[in-house]
Design a protein around this nucleic acid. Sequence first.
RNA 1: CGGGCUAUAGCGCAGUCUGGUAGCGCGUCCGUCUGGGGGACGGGAGGUCGCAGGUUCGAAUCCUGCUAGCCCGACCA
Length: 450
Amino acid sequence: MRLTRYFLPVLKENPAEAQIVSHRLMLRAGMIKQASAGIYSWLPLGFKVLRKIENIVHEEQMRAGHIPMLMPTLQSADLWRESGRYDDYGEEMLRITDRHGRDMLYGPTNEELITDIFRAHVSSYRDLPLTLYHIQWKFRDEIRPRFGVMRGREFLMKDGYNFDLTKEDALHAYNRHLVSYLRTYERMGLQAIPMRADSGPIGGDDTHEFLVLAETGESEVFYDSAVTDIQLGEREIDYDDVDQCRAVMEEFTALYARTDETHDEAKFNEIPEERRRSARGIEVGQIFYFGTKYSAAMGATVQGPDGKPVEVHMGSHGIGVSRLLGAIIEASHDDNGIIWPEGVTPFHAGIVNLKQGDAEADAACEAIYAAMTAVGLEPLYDDREERAGAKFATMDLIGLPWRITVGPRGLKNGVVELTSRRTGENEELPPEEAVQRLAAIYEGHMVRGI
RNA sequence: CGGGCUAUAGCGCAGUCUGGUAGCGCGUCCGUCUGGGGGACGGGAGGUCGCAGGUUCGAAUCCUGCUAGCCCGACCA
């Protein structure tokens, strides 16, 4: 993409309403624009990152054997009356009446809809196990939306639902999700720690929240510092392997890590004192096992091998997709702006032409642009008639992890500069080598964008 | 929902107390110079002063009502 043809309305000054760094940077980098309280338009740069995150979530869900689909944002109140949650959910649910006077709602979650689909089409134990998921906009009418996309009213969420014949099968689904979530977050450059949590209005006994440590987090968390040393890394996972998934789950949840809702001071104090940590965290996902709560209420049964109806065991699992943008920025920025992890960056590298209009510099930039595109990389070429300082400032603000700087001075010696946004490290090398280097860096980090 | 606050050009703000027909910085447009960390000079464009009503010869400014948004707290992917 050439910057002169793109739409990137960056701001030099901080908008007054933005208090936390991710909100400020998303506004300044021209990623979002507030439409009303807690509701945002996603401008091209923000939309690009949102789609990349969404695609990582899809890839990891499908890798774990979960089936993508799409349910509507508007739902009928009838299903919610059936589950009993129409009254339980309270003011947070946005209720709407259509022209015929029918009660509708903008879905805050989808347990009812998915259970309705399930009971209509699944009748045999032989169709199990089944895990369906979608990535769809939700609406929760928060009393006080704040922090930009971190606590919006309208937000994009991946929510999935597993249906299993037995509790054991459902617990495997639980573990499978825990593992797949770990991989999902790691691919985005995040460390999200699973913590024992409270189930809230979803209900159920077993639940973990995934928290990204950040000073601006809304949750207070307590943990054993050793948990931050555990990484999934490159290890091979067979998501059908019950024992392996359980082992990984146990590895990641053995050490103490809880939110304030479930914090147990006595157990916390059993940790050696030098490893006790209290901090703040951003909740980026949650997994639940809730047994037959919805299947019993809504009559979701299958016929077992003996021909008798069995209420299915269910769980649900969510990832706050739009919130993740905020969480990633909170975890990865500096005074000059955002620093995108390679996995989610909107463009793979920026090309800065220091002397726009100089025949050699222009030609060199075009050649790099073509070479990057040829190997499947997506560059953002700053071809504006701006001075070097302005171009650098823009690149730093929008946070592309790599920058190729092209100027007449370097070109005389046949080199350009490759600079890491994160470390500031700078290397002079021939243009072709810079492109090769980028191709190697992004090997394994290629995510379909838009 | 309790407490605090704001609304004036795309963004950040002054002007309101003491009424007289709206200003600054950034951005933006045109031109010249410049060219390795938000450059300089010159010239432009851009505003129903959140909305409605009232007081007044005259309202951004005073009065009444409303709306929207922000911050702190109690609740939540």
